[in-house]
């Protein structure tokens, strides 16, 4: 049995299609990533799977329960950490947990025991009597994750779990998430627009853009699909270098950026010597040269023709449009 099955899931706001015919299955125990820029439809997908939004059409089930016909069972099966904070700052960490436990009708004894266990897991046990408003961003995130686990969900939804956190805290959180997946065998579905995060945590990744999945697979497979390595050369005469290199055989693509030239080609290690020799013979100075294997960033570029940052701007535009439509 799959932990989550999604079939042709679609959500429209007015005439704007936020999610367009998504289909995928998630295995039990898997960490599944939805990767894409802001406004790509990740959060909308999460909202539908967590029964917060009704899909316009399509079907989905979570833990075997249909999201339309069996809302309460779906809700009982999932834990969720929202993109925006959802703690009560005027209550202590313990009280926030306790509130959650009561909402999910856990018996007093079990509630108490699990709250302590989970607060220990996220290393907040010694601060459990402090008001949440005194917590830092990272502590709040950890508390939210602990809270999401309190009723022992089968599936944990993490919507941009590390957004706005400093790199150190982010690494720390990644460790927690890995630990959860390893020790509790819990199915995790997470959205992110950090390539690194998806790469590090997820067994499989769906790249989602403008409401549709454009690629799906393990991070290694997605990178293989790109098929080329990338050479990056910093040079003061990059135009000259560009015209020289572009005539060489085996070059898949070549682009000029602010201070550098990126060349996509197969077996970059073999060709790099030729490029250097040629630049030397034509008196083109080379500041530095580096070869790297494709990252998820390149994967995104490969499948969409845009970098994720270029996409951010237009994604925000879409969000604005969506908000207007929803009013």
């Amino acid at each position: 049995m799959f932990a989550i099955t999604v079939e042709n899931l679609t959500k429209e706001f007015g005439n704007f299609t936020a999610v367009n015919g998504l289909s995928f299955n998630i295995e039990q125990g898997e960490v599944f990533g939805l990767l894409g820029p802001n406004g790509a439809g990740k959060t909308t997908t999460m909202s539908m799977l967590s029964t917060m939004l009704k899909p316009s059409c399509g079907k989905a089930s979570v833990n075997g329960y249909d999201i339309l016909n069996n809302e309460d069972e779906v809700r009982r099966s999932i834990g969720i950490v929202f993109q925006d904070q959802s703690l009560d700052e005027e209550l202590t960490a313990y009280e926030n947990m306790d509130f959650h436990g009561r909402l999910y009708r856990l018996d007093k004894g079990i509630r108490k025991k699990r709250i302590i266990e989970l607060l220990e897991l996220v290393e907040l046990a010694d601060k459990k009597e402090n008001l949440v408003k005194t917590y830092s961003g990272g502590m709040r995130r950890r508390l939210e994750i602990a809270r999401g686990l309190l009723h022992e969900p089968k599936v944990l939804f993490l919507d941009e779990p590390t957004l706005g956190l400093d790199p150190q805290t982010r690494n720390h959180l990644w460790d927690y998430i890995e630990k959860l997946s390893r020790e509790k065998g819990i199915t995790i579905i997470l959205t992110t627009h950090y390539m690194e995060e998806a790469d590090k945590l997820c067994n499989r990744i769906a790249i989602i853009d403008k409401g549709s999945i454009i690629a799906l697979g393990t991070s290694d497979k997605l990178k293989k699909d790109v098929g080329v390595d990338i050479i990056k050369i910093v040079s003061s005469e990059k135009e000259k270098l560009w015209s020289a290199v572009s005539s060489m055989p085996g070059i898949k693509n070549i682009e000029i950026h602010d201070d550098s030239l990126t060349i996509g080609l197969k077996d970059a290690e073999k060709h790099v010597v030729k490029i250097i020799n040629m630049a030397y013979s034509r008196d083109i100075p080379i500041g530095s040269i580096s070869i790297h294997k494709p990252t998820l960033e390149d994967v995104f570029l490969h499948f969409t023709g845009r970098t994720i940052r270029e996409e951010e701007a237009s994604g925000k535009e879409q969000m604005r449009m969506m908000r207007r439509l929803r009013r």
Binding site: S50, M52, E71, F82, D88, L103
Partner: peptide
């Protein structure tokens, strides 16, 4: 915080 309450069963 309302989300936390509304998503509960």
């Amino acid at each position: 915080f309302l989300k936390e309450t509304l998503v509960a069963p």
